[in-house]
Amino acid sequence: MKWLNFTRLHPSTFILLGIPGMEFAHFWIAFPFCFIYVLVLLGNLLILLIVKMEVSLHDPMHFFLCMLAVTDLTLPSSFVPKMLAHFWFQSRAILFEVCLLQMFFIHSFTAIESGVLVAMAFDRYVAICFPLRYVSILTHSTIGKVMFLVAIRAVFLTMPIPLLLVQQTFCEYNIIAHSYCEHMAVVKLVCGDATTNAYYGFVVALMGAGTDLVLIALSYFLILRSVLRLPTNEARFKSFCTCGSHLCAILLFYVPALFSFIAHRFGHHVALHIHIVLANSYLLLPPLLNPLIYGVKTQQIRKRVRIMFCRKKV
Rank of each mutant, 00 (worst) to 15 (best):
M1I: 05
K2C: 01
K2F: 13
K2N: 14
T7R: 12
H10T: 06
S12M: 07
F14G: 05
I15V: 11
L16W: 02
L17Y: 09
P20W: 03
P20R: 01
A25N: 03
F27W: 10
F31K: 08
P32K: 06
F33S: 00
I36G: 02
L39V: 12
V40K: 00
L41Q: 12
L45T: 14
L46H: 06
L57F: 01
L57K: 04
M61I: 04
M67G: 15
D72L: 03
L73I: 08
T74W: 13
S78T: 14
F79D: 03
K82M: 02
M83C: 08
F87N: 04
S91W: 09
A93I: 00
L95V: 00
F96H: 15
F96Y: 15
C99K: 05
C99Y: 03
F104Q: 03
F105C: 13
T110C: 09
I112K: 10
E113K: 15
E113W: 05
V116N: 03
M120G: 03
M120N: 02
F122P: 00
C129T: 11
L132W: 09
L132G: 07
R133G: 01
R133W: 08
V135N: 12
I137E: 04
I137H: 11
S141M: 06
T142G: 03
I143D: 01
G144N: 12
V150N: 06
A151I: 11
A151C: 14
R153Q: 10
I161P: 03
L164W: 05
L165A: 04
Q168P: 00
E172R: 13
I176V: 15
I176P: 01
A177P: 01
S179H: 11
L189H: 06
C191S: 13
D193P: 07
A198L: 12
A198E: 15
A205Q: 13
M207N: 02
G210V: 01
G210A: 06
L213P: 04
I223E: 05
L228R: 12
L228I: 08
R229K: 13
P231V: 12
E234M: 03
K238Q: 15
K238T: 13
C248F: 14
C248I: 09
L251P: 06
L252I: 06
F253N: 09
P256D: 05
S260K: 09
F261Y: 14
H264V: 14
V270M: 12
H275S: 03
H275N: 04
L285R: 01
P287S: 07
L292P: 02
R302C: 09
K303N: 06
R306V: 11
I307H: 09
M308S: 08
K312N: 07
K313V: 10
K313T: 06
